[in-house]
Design a protein around this nucleic acid. Structure first.
Lengths: 147, 147
DNA sequence: GTAAATGCAAAGTTTTTGCCGCACA
DNA sequence: TGTGCGGCAAAAACTTTGCATTTAC
């Protein structure tokens, strides 16, 4: 799916407004980083964003991209697709179940709550042959919310 | 939730059987790694598993743990909780939507398929205050399945 | 006996941190 | 004119690879 120029401009305008509300400075680097992310639905990594910006903004630092994306995410301007990107986490329990991760301490727990249901899907979505799916809830665990 | 010794032994027995069926050698290291994962629902990282085993198996190598977990995962003996652990991936689209990732090439696409629905949940699961959730489908994209 | 698995060392990736200079409210 | 931001370098954290040795079958 393509995102057209007008949509991007709208998003950038909102980004500037929200940044000012949040007390974040709007710099050329930040605008470039936001725009790079707004113009694609490919969910790029930090490195990909950096490389794209380098073409027209050769002095930008990779560190800035890392720090800026983290700042944006912390303030809700963007979201991280893979909350648990820090390290691989494994599970020997192969029965279908869901997970909940604490956004503070990164602890993961299994969910067996019966209110959590997923509607049956067929094994074809868009151009993909689906081999599985997982539901990941984000939350704050009781010990972190106590703090 | 606790996993009792009998459950663990059953899992280890099945692990040995499946390994043999798959032509995988059952070594003391592999058994230790599997057991370490079977006895917890904490979804440990490679490092955590390594540290726990080190206590009673001081010679084990971190490399072995990495390689073994990858082998187990490839053969379906265990699963990886966070498919996209390689690098952080970002999204400027804040409207609720789901994702599908190609298990081969790691490409991510948005899902707007109306057959994908999630039943409404309240904002409390177990001890967590839920702030959001995401559904991640695993699949094989058309260009990868062509190969 | 042989192919597969392990351990060690080294290298490759991804991410974070410290420090200093710069710039915009 | 001070606080936040950016750039550079270094370090930290996580993961993979090459090679010689050992082991399970």
């Amino acid at each position: 799916m393509e995102i057209n120029n007008q949509q991007i401009e709208t998003m950038v305008t909102e980004f500037v407004t929200k940044s000012k509300e949040l007390g974040l400075k709007v710099t050329p680097q930040r605008t470039a980083i936001y725009k790079e992310l707004a113009k694609t639905d490919q969910h790029p990594s930090t490195e990909m964003i950096y490389k794209n910006i380098k073409d027209y903004f050769p002095n930008i630092s990779l560190t800035t991209v890392y720090r800026t994306l983290e700042t944006f995410e912390k303030h809700g301007l963007i979201s991280v697709v893979n909350q648990l990107y820090n390290a691989a986490r494994y599970d020997a329990n192969l029965t279908p179940h869901h997970h909940i991760v604490c956004v503070e301490c990164k602890k993961i727990e299994d969910i067996y709550d019966s209110s959590v249901n997923y509607t049956k899907i067929d094994n074809k979505i868009q151009d993909y042959e689906v081999v599985g799916y997982s539901v990941l809830f984000n939350g704050i665990c009781s010990s972190c919310s106590d703090k």
